[in-house]
């Protein structure tokens, strides 16, 4: 059903001028960890807000020697992940995989794979709202100024008010963090469980917000500190006493699932690739 993209369009879909601009922007982003670098952002053949930022990054990086994994909610088989993979395959000869350890590039929405990213891998995030200060300030001009002056009192106040009102910080995913002790950034809506994985990692993390036209990055071995107070420390999600019903794991991020007949609640790994590997290991003695 796909038109023959390889013939009609340039290698990796984007024209070379677009790739150059994304590459220049990415290099700048790496040099200023957590700072959102504006870029022109092309319209892609998938919905704007459906991963076009991540996709543009992937297409600016990918070559035939690469092996690509795409996940949505940790799942390789989620329909939008499949759709993105299909598009990349239609305009490159790159291999695709569900095994995060085989992949050279991993494009993701909302999760970081359970197995840590290696130095030779790049994790690419699809970002809906790149501005962590948007929750306290609607205007781009002003948030830009707040970052420039490192005036983060607004967001700290917001966290404090949360504690007063709810007894704890009420942010779920997309928990703001400070990069290289300078810029507060939005880690894209990954769960808090994944946020510490950004701190002093071996691999490179790239963030692409297509609709909002921003690229930012967290290089390896960079200080990433979730915003928190001494007496109200940062907490990840709680899965105390829960196990994956497929692989038995008790140390991974779990999806909560309800049996449609019995209404019974059970848990299952959100990282499906890793879960499958664990299951295989369990079955081979």
């Amino acid at each position: 059903m796909q038109p023959h993209l390889k013939q009609t369009y340039n290698y990796a879909f984007l024209d070379e001028g677009s790739k150059k601009e994304i590459r220049r922007t990415t290099l700048k982003a790496v040099a200023i960890p957590g700072y959102q670098v504006p870029f022109a952002s092309r319209e892609m053949p998938i919905g704007r807000g459906w991963g076009t930022g991540g996709l543009q990054l992937t297409l600016s990086l990918i070559g035939d020697q690469d092996c690509l994994k795409v996940i949505d909610q940790g799942n390789d088989d989620s329909v939008n992940a499949v759709s993105i993979k299909k598009l990349v395959q239609s305009c490159t000869e790159a291999e695709v995989t569900t095994d995060s350890e085989r992949a050279t590039l991993i494009q993701t929405r909302h999760r970081i794979p359970e197995v840590p990213i290696r130095a030779d891998q790049i994790l690419i995030f699809q970002v809906p709202l790149p501005e962590p200060l948007r929750m306290v300030e609607a205007k781009e001009r002003k948030t830009k100024q707040l970052h420039a002056e490192m005036d983060y009192s607004g967001i700290w106040l917001r966290l404090y008010e949360d504690i007063v009102k709810w007894g704890k910080i009420s942010i779920g995913a997309d928990y703001p963090a400070l990069a290289h002790k300078r810029h507060i950034f939005a880690p894209s809506p990954i769960p808090r469980y994944d946020l510490p994985k950004l701190n002093h990692a071996d691999g490179l993390f790239l963030f692409g917000a297509g609709r909002e036209k921003k690229i930012y990055a967290i290089p390896p071995y960079t200080d990433i500190e979730p915003l928190a107070f001494d007496d109200y420390p940062f907490e990840t999600e709680h899965f105390d006493g829960c196990n994956c019903r497929l692989c038995g794991s008790s140390d991974t991020f779990l999806d909560e699932i309800f049996d449609e007949k019995t209404g019974q609640k059970f848990y299952q790994c959100s990282d499906t690739g890793n879960c499958r590997k664990r299951q295989e290991k369990r079955h081979t003695p």
């Binding site: 790739k19 590459r23 040099a31 990086l61 070559g63 490179l204 990055a217 390896p220």
Partner: peptide, 19 residues
């Protein structure tokens, strides 16, 4: 090659910039 060699160079440059 303006497509493939620039891409390869970029990947190595990005790796050097990140490390």
């Amino acid at each position: 090659h303006h497509v493939h060699d620039t891409r390869k160079l970029y990947r190595r440059l990005l790796d050097s910039m990140a490390k």
